[in-house]
Write a protein that binds this DNA or RNA. Structure first.
Lengths: 373, 373
DNA sequence: CTGAAAGCGCTAACAA
DNA sequence: TTGTTAGCGCTTTCAG
């Protein structure tokens, strides 16, 4: 493997000259530049990453710090990771994937002290995240994916949950829905202060209030079963619901299944909109899910670009950006069915199921009514 | 940041001694070892990754080379990536994510020549993959994820498609299914020699032959629509089918939707088994998909471990391993409905739909028959 | 069992 | 505009 010395010798210049044509850190005459370039080409020269890193104190390596949770990465996170990798690669940087437990602060400190990372992207940021302080102490520039509670002097890129919820609600209200249930993450997740769950909860309440309708939020475990359970609760508390807005990619499929199990049709009986969802996942459902598409890879790219700006220019301004998810209407949302006419009171009484007061019956009835029409 | 010199001075030993207690490359007396350890602790010493890399010619960085296709990574690939990252991390290595176009051989050569990678994992290996030669020329040890056509002298880890198909077929045949349709990737994908598609196709034919039943394979685009189209074709060519085995995670959801659209129930009317599928995805379906669970993160871990063995010991033997996907029975598979009794011939004739010869009718009829029972 | 010192391949003063 | 050279922080002979 050719070294810079070889190139210098062949081009009959000094090593520093070779170095300078490479880095462009000082002007080199066209003539020598050409000589050097030719020599490099002839020798298939490639600068030695470690040597360069040691001498320049810049590794050109970025760290992507992702907590390793049991359930692995979702489609959105994956898109983020690949987006970040592409952006880094395009800028001549490398991206290392560092799985560090969120509470393994020592491990993080060790990683940061190895001086291998020029900067870091912090994924799955908690509202109060100790990792930030550790990284700062170690002098590692960073950009958050998500937000801590206090974002003073912190660069971050995050989803604009407020706007996303607002847009989703506007879509449903625009279609004529009034009784919309918001299915969030689990109560435990909310209790431990998971930002997106809290932010969307509040945004939902605000958005519904703006439209003058009453908000109803129901937590759900991150699973199909959780979705089904949430749906049951939803029908208990709001038998007349016509739309579900779900912030829970896993639960939403359970909701779909639960709806089908009740003999309800999507979107004729109930509209379903999924928040922060990738097109790939949205299209797995039948009908395909109307969803707020997460800007996964864009987030990754923007985060990397912001981080690089901090590296190039130490005085670069803090970058705080929120990207909304964009509404993509697919098959799971539509105008609500007309409400059970009051005039059908008699028919209801005659219905053998009418003695049961569960939402299930109400909904079924409504659906059946519409089908007859 | 403390350097090795600082540690040496504080411990009153030479730098080389410090280095040796760190690497263990030569015996050190317990007494000095303790002194050095104490000094390191006191100074919060962390070896400088680049300096160490330059001097030792080992970066302790592994590369994960993934072609950036438009559609991004699936759940299986993602599990693989995180599995690899964890394994590398556990072994004190770093994993860099290098998105390199499969046909950007120069880019790959450049990457390899930077001497930043001690070794590489090659994802989405083609049957004939030029990247292998490039990496070998550059002297970068590698482990394939997947297999090239000729695997001489090559270490690889791959899914045991043959066994996986065999197990899946055995499951269905064991349940009593005789008419099983195999939904593969698209014709184009097969034509371009995509290994998994070819291997499973052949394995399916062989497995069916072993059971003395006739194989039927249908290609499908990687989308829900592709799945629906494939289902239509399937019913045309095998109106009496009772089970679908799908090698296409995207299409399988379309198949499910198509089945529901025809008024067919899973698994009562048609059983569906999905190949090489993650539990997360399998559980999105209703009913949850019986699937051959891909050993995603195990693949990643094993690949890294094999690669590390090559790095530690240049003479380490080639590692070639196939991991089967394991059958996980969920709700989408069950015994076939009983075939339309021959004695119902008259009823068939009376059925207004019976004049149509589409599979749809046949299947519907059968389903209806069972429901009446 | 330990130390001294020569690099690893490059960058960036400093000097011309 | 170019060259000389002193490191960057560590590993690893070579000596003792």
């Amino acid at each position: 493997m050719a070294t810079m010395h070889d190139v210098a010798r062949l081009a009959r210049v000094s090593v520093s000259t070779v170095s300078y044509v490479l880095t462009g850190a000082r002007p080199i005459s066209q003539a020598t530049r050409d000589k050097v370039r030719a020599a490099m080409a002839e020798l298939d020269y490639q600068p030695h990453a470690m040597a360069r890193g040691l001498a320049s104190r810049r590794s050109r390596i970025l760290g992507l710090l992702l907590p390793i949770d049991d359930r692995g990465l979702g489609a959105t996170e994956t898109a983020f990771v690949t987006g970040a990798a592409s952006a880094a690669s395009a800028a001549g940087y490398h991206l290392v994937l560092s799985p560090v437990d969120a509470d393994d602060l020592d491990g993080l400190r060790r990683l940061a002290s190895q001086r291998m990372l020029d900067g870091a992207l912090l994924m799955e940021v908690q509202l109060d995240d100790d990792r930030v302080a550790v990284l700062r102490e170690a002098g590692v520039p960073l950009v958050l994916i998500g937000r801590t509670g206090d974002t003073t002097d912190l660069s971050y890129v995050d989803i604009d949950f407020d706007r996303t919820v607002r847009d989703a609600v506007a879509h449903l209200v625009g279609l004529g829905h009034r009784r919309i249930v918001y299915v969030n993450h689990s109560a435990a997740t909310i209790a431990e202060g998971y930002g997106p769950a809290l932010r969307t909860r509040d945004a939902f309440a605000a958005a519904m209030a703006e439209h003058g309708v009453e908000p109803l939020m129901i937590p759900a475990e991150d699973s199909a079963a959780g979705g089904r359970a949430a749906l049951a609760t939803a029908f208990d508390r709001a038998p007349d619901l016509t739309a579900v807005l779900a912030m829970n990619e896993r639960a939403v499929f359970g909701i779909l299944g639960g709806l089908a199990g009740r003999g309800l049709t999507v979107p004729d009986d109930v509209s379903v909109v999924s928040m922060v969802t990738s097109p790939q996942v949205a299209e797995l459902a039948t009908p395909a899910l109307t969803a707020m598409t997460s800007p996964g890879s864009a987030l990754g790219r923007i985060a990397v670009e912001a981080l690089l700006r901090h590296l190039e220019l130490d005085s670069a301004p803090i970058h705080q950006e929120l990207l909304p998810c964009t509404l993509e209407v697919r098959g799971s949302s539509g105008p609500p069915g007309r409400p059970t006419p009051d005039t059908t009171g008699e028919a209801d009484a005659a219905d053998p199921e009418a003695s049961g007061t569960t939402s299930k019956n109400t909904a079924r009835r409504r659906a059946a009514t519409r089908r007859r029409a």
